[in-house]
């Protein structure tokens, strides 16, 4: 299982901040589960400028998710 965290506009779009996805083996698998349950969110997280962090480290491409992995989808950032 993986714990998915959403930030910024992605959270408002989905209407939730945190959700557990059971039985996902890798990021592609997680993405297809999200696409099945939340097609709008799946499209948004594939959009330009959205970064992915697994266990608080940025990743690119597909990677295997260990049990209990934390997967955060990070839309374009803007501080100060």
């Amino acid at each position: 299982m993986a714990c998915v965290l959403l930030f910024g506009a992605l959270r408002d779009l989905a209407g939730w901040r945190e959700q557990i996805f059971d039985g996902v083996s890798d990021l592609d698998h997680l993405h297809s589960d999200i696409a099945r349950l939340y097609p709008d969110l799946a499209e948004a997280i594939s959009g330009p400028g959205v970064q992915v962090a697994v266990n608080k480290a940025l990743v690119r491409g597909n990677i295997i998710l260990s049990a209990g992995a934390e997967v955060a989808f990070l839309p374009p950032m803007s501080g100060g």
Partner: peptide
């Protein structure tokens, strides 16, 4: 430090005004 905090640091900023709320993304200038 400021240039990087403005458009690279992991923060998300929402502006609340009379017309509602909107998420702010960095400007092209940033």
């Amino acid at each position: 430090l400021m240039d990087h905090l403005k458009s690279r640091a992991p923060f998300w900023k929402k502006e609340h005004g009379p017309g509602g709320a909107r998420w702010i993304e960095p400007r092209q200038a940033d």
